[in-house]
Nucleic acid binder design. Structure first.
Lengths: 143, 143
DNA sequence: CATAATTCTGTTGATATCAACCTATTTAGT
DNA sequence: ACTAAATAGGTTGATATCAACAGAATTATG
């Protein structure tokens, strides 16, 4: 019904597919590298986004990570169970939750950062364009 | 424990995070566009990868999509239930399964292609680099 | 040809992802 | 102040993702 040539074109051209593939491959790579500290790539990014002077709300974090609100709700649960974060009701606005790293969360993050640095350097070295900044700009525009 | 500047650096530099964000955003975008034909972006890519002269094995498809084998097993189930694909034991090698589009699967795919074309054009227009080929090359190298 | 290693896939359990629908709280309009 | 609209999150159900383990078939080796 659809010519094989169309399939080849879509397969080669589709940015959505290319990004999903790269996302899966990078996720596996960072998940593996971070396993010694017990974090996945997503948990690392999430914890890192909480390491700031004032604890952010869920909406702010979801937006930063380009992640659905409800995905974030689910992602927080294992981290809270493990005592790496605390979820507090915002006294200024009782609808809102404040997400706060615990000392244990901070410590885990501190162990993860050197691993991230090593891994990230070797990933940037893979780029044929040798231009990670441009890649980041393009990806940013897609978010 | 970790300085805020480190957080800012990781947040801005991490290719894994940038790719995950773009992957989520593009997935939402294509999922939404393809909803009228009842496919998600992943199902579209999967069905499209089955539209070839000879039905491929699972391993071949998983590798093409840079997807875990077992993820593929799970992804096939709803498509099989809906009668869009068939999973056949390879007569040449009884360990292997051959993945085959049904006529209904072909028809669904045919309806999806024009939607993909429209959506993909508007996505490419978002790129500040104006160079989708280079982006694809970089993403490919990461997979 | 027997058996050991390899290959292809499945199952289970955990987390990730989002749409659709829901409640509680805050804010805006009158 | 009262009510309507908007905002912040939560719950449920479906699919997606992968590691760890396991089974069945094939291939390689001696």
């Amino acid at each position: 019904m659809i010519p094989f040539e169309t399939t080849l074109h879509v397969r080669d051209a589709c940015l959505c597919l290319h990004v999903q593939r790269a996302a899966r491959a990078l996720a596996r790579r960072f998940d593996e590298a971070l396993r010694p500290v017990g974090l996945t790539n997503g948990q690392f990014s999430l914890l890192m986004s909480l390491n700031r002077p004032a604890p952010p709300s869920m909406g702010a974090v979801a937006s930063l990570l380009a992640m659905d609100r409800t995905t974030l709700t689910a992602a927080l649960k294992p981290l809270e169970r493990r005592g790496l974060i605390e979820i507090l009701v915002d006294p200024e606005d009782k609808r809102s939750r404040l997400l706060k790293l615990t000392p244990a969360g901070s410590a885990t993050l501190a162990k993860a950062v050197p691993i991230w640095k090593r891994e990230h350097m070797s990933v940037e070295a893979l780029l044929p364009s040798l231009d990670p900044d441009r890649l980041r700009q393009d990806l940013q525009a897609l978010s």
